[in-house]
Design a binder for these strands. Structure first.
Length: 426
RNA sequence: GGAGAGGUGCUCGAGUGGUUGAAGAGGCACGCCUGGAAAGCGUGUAUACCGCAAGGUAUCGAGGGUUCGAAUCCCUCUCUCUCCGCCA
């Protein structure tokens, strides 16, 4: 959620930012409407506080009058308070209504894009920030198979079995497939640890408050699996529980940046897709992911962002996968993000780029709802910047490894993974 | 699932209607003391909102109620803990 103050102090930037996100002039009016409601809210509170102050003063006075035995004077003051109550109730109601309305409206506003973000309608308008310049996988004497065929051929991932156990989009990894998955998780976690991240194993279900604080609720309610009976949500990403660890805290500046990482399965309902995009591991309801999260000083957050980009990039280099980096345009960027870079790997048989990581700076958009702040030496608390990124999303990485490293006999395991898998080929 | 206890500030912990935003202790910070340290002494130690400011308002799990006045009384909800049962 945006800080309401910037609608006043930085209105021009807000308008430009929302325009990058393709807000129509009609919708832009929301900004002024919110400020107006907030003006009214301030006015109401000033009045309300004055009335409450009088009630408090009278009550105190009544106390001492009673002790002094002056009942008649006490009665006069008591009467006055009784008369004020109607007004107080009215103002309180209006204040509560305004607070609700302001929040409801404010939640409609997405984060203001960073100045480097271009306007654009969709993923087609994303800018290729860094293209792949190395060699592409080549195959001599045979046509590379898509990963779903390889999965079946070597009996390492069973999608049909997943359907039997649960439903479509719940792959079953087995044998060397399962071990490859586990190897990747260990590799990613070890790399994160080396980069200074503390490993977290969080709950896989969260309560409503937690889902709200990182912005999954109310915007993306439909994306999450919901346990009706206990009012829990299955996490769509480790970002949710991990970022919430520090919810409500006031850190000292010396604690920053906080670096956290976590492996979790991720559960996504992802309704409404179809076609070849969803085939195999391209889009599933449950997948594994290692997430990195940083809580940073506002002055440092873009430096932190580039370090996170480097981290992810190194993973892909070590895995020997062709990759490219996109800077998302205003139309494709997530609601909560100020700047997002996507990493895509090339999957040789499908001949397309698959998104395997998304690294974002949310600035104060998340911390505002998280109430996550820090304090300089003898300064006032101010909101931190939060950042996160996938490092990396497993399913599609597996797809790319299988497709790119195949030969007619099997699949070669990238060298860095071999110590984790214990085998060199599938 | 059954029975009970309880949620107060950074922590512990008092507090059953009236200068209690909240005793006391601990922790932390600063100062004094010291050759230095410990001990000791002193001072300070929440957050949000409104206000140019002075200052004001709110907050003792959450919400509602009683009252001139509530951390203190009443109702609802919620969470935690203990015991029993079940269980990896």
């Amino acid at each position: 959620m945006l800080e309401i103050n910037i609608l006043r102090t930085d209105k021009q930037r807000v308008i430009e930012g929302l325009t990058k996100r393709n807000f129509t002039p009609e919708r832009l009016k929301l900004v002024d409407q919110i400020v107006e409601m907030d003006d009214r809210r301030k006015f109401v509170q000033t009045n309300l506080d004055q009335l409450l102050a009088r009630v408090n003063a009278n009550s105190k006075e009544i106390g001492s009058l009673f002790k002094a035995g002056d009942k008649s004077q006490a009665e006069v003051l008591r009467q006055e308070v009784t008369n004020l109550k109607g007004q107080i109730k009215e103002l309180e109601n209006e204040q509560n209504r305004l607070i609700d309305d302001i929040e409801t409206a404010l939640i409609e506003l997405p984060n203001i894009p960073h100045s480097s973000v271009r306007q654009g309608k969709s993923a087609d308008d994303n800018e290729v920030y860094k293209d792949w310049s190395g060699p592409m996988p080549e195959f001599e004497g045979f046509d590379p198979l898509p990963h779903w065929d390889l999965a079946e051929k070597y009996n390492i991932i069973d999608l049909k079995l997943g359907v039997k156990l649960t439903g479509s989009g719940f792959p079953v990894f087995r044998g060397k497939g399962a071990k490859l998955e586990r190897a990747l998780i260990n590799f990613f976690l070890d790399e994160a640890e080396k980069a200074g991240y503390e490993e977290i194993m969080p709950p896989l279900m969260v309560n409503e408050e937690t889902a709200r604080a990182t912005g999954q609720l109310p915007d993306k309610e439909g994306q999450m699996y919901h346990i009706e009976r206990d009012k829990f949500y299955l996490i769509p990403t480790a970002e949710v529980p991990v970022t919430n660890i520090l919810r409500g805290e006031i850190l000292s500046a010396a604690d920053l940046p906080v670096q956290l990482t976590g492996y979790t399965p991720c559960f996504r309902r992802e309704a409404g897709s179809y076609g070849s995009d969803v085939k195999g591991l391209n889009r599933v309801h449950q997948f594994d992911k290692v997430e990195i999260v940083q809580i940073a000083h506002p002055d440092q957050s873009y430096k932190v962002l580039s370090r996170m980009l480097e981290h992810v990039e190194q993973l892909l280099i070590k895995l020997e996968l062709p990759y490219r980096i996109l800077r998302l345009c205003g139309g494709d960027m997530g609601f909560t993000s100020a700047l997002t870079f996507d990493f895509e790997v090339f999957s040789a048989a499908q001949r397309k780029w698959l998104e395997v990581s998304s690294v974002s700076n949310f600035e104060t958009f998340q911390s505002n709802r998280l109430k996550l702040r820090f304090r300089e030496e003898d300064g006032k608390p101010q909101l931190v910047h939060t950042l996160n990124g996938s490092a990396l999303a497993l399913a599609r990485i597996v797809a790319a490894i299988l497709e790119n490293n195949q030969d007619s006999e099997g699949v070669k395991i990238p060298r860095v993974l071999q110590q984790f898998t214990g085998f060199e080929r599938i």
